[in-house]
Design a protein around this nucleic acid. Structure first.
Lengths: 108, 108
DNA sequence: TTGTCATTTGGCGAAATAACCAAGTGACTT
DNA sequence: AAGTCACTTGGTTATTTCGCCAAATGACAA
């Protein structure tokens, strides 16, 4: 792996890493249809608002979402909606895993 | 977020998490065309063979790759090649980020 | 300007991740 | 059966991540 490759793969890994958390995936799903303020998002998550804010800033840092202020509130929106479409294949992995599980259980 | 949703999102996050490391992305790219033994993969990575073995086991645990023994060697192969196609959109994020960077630098 | 609401930031402890080395396992060779 | 090769596993240490609480910030309201 060359230094240049490492740079490229690091950048990719950073995007995946930013998404690789259940709360952040949930936030992204909420943002899929429309923008939301932090308070609106916090209601659905079982976590402190500061925790949600930090998750959002992770997503923002990665360039996946952006934010705008409107009065006291800050609205977040999805910058690259196609990211959520890639789950078709993630689901394929999960289905395969589920089948493998089932196969292991069958003989018992 | 319901308990059931959490379960689903945890499963998705686990797949992303398994991929979210530069070395593991590199390994996946190597496996894209054909299977490889651990030794073959280790040559290209600047890391101990035990480190590479552990990375491969992370990918295997997630159901992304599988392995088979052939004599002394163990060959790994990609189980779900479509995973690598989803980078089209990851790249879209990265390009956007690069443009944003450029825009920030311009006024200086 | 004082207060309040919405959000971010800093700091802390607990838990997870990552890398190396060393020791263990499994299969072929002699 | 003893040795060697290919790989995995266990142990240690350093770093990162995660969640909460408390304190700081920014914008509007009184």
């Amino acid at each position: 792996m060359t230094a240049q490759e490492l740079l490229r793969l690091n950048a990719r890994a950073a995007v995946l890493k930013a998404m690789a958390h259940p709360t952040r995936l949930w936030l992204l799903e909420q943002l899929q249809q429309q923008e939301h303020c932090v308070c609106g998002l916090t209601d659905g998550v079982n976590a402190d608002i500061s925790t949600v804010s930090k998750h959002l800033s992770v997503l923002k840092q990665a360039g996946i979402v952006s934010s705008r202020r409107d009065g006291k509130q800050i609205f977040y929106r999805l910058e690259t909606p196609c990211l959520l479409k890639m789950f078709a294949c993630v689901e394929a992995v999960l289905e395969k895993n589920a089948k493998a599980q089932a196969a292991l259980l069958k003989p018992c």
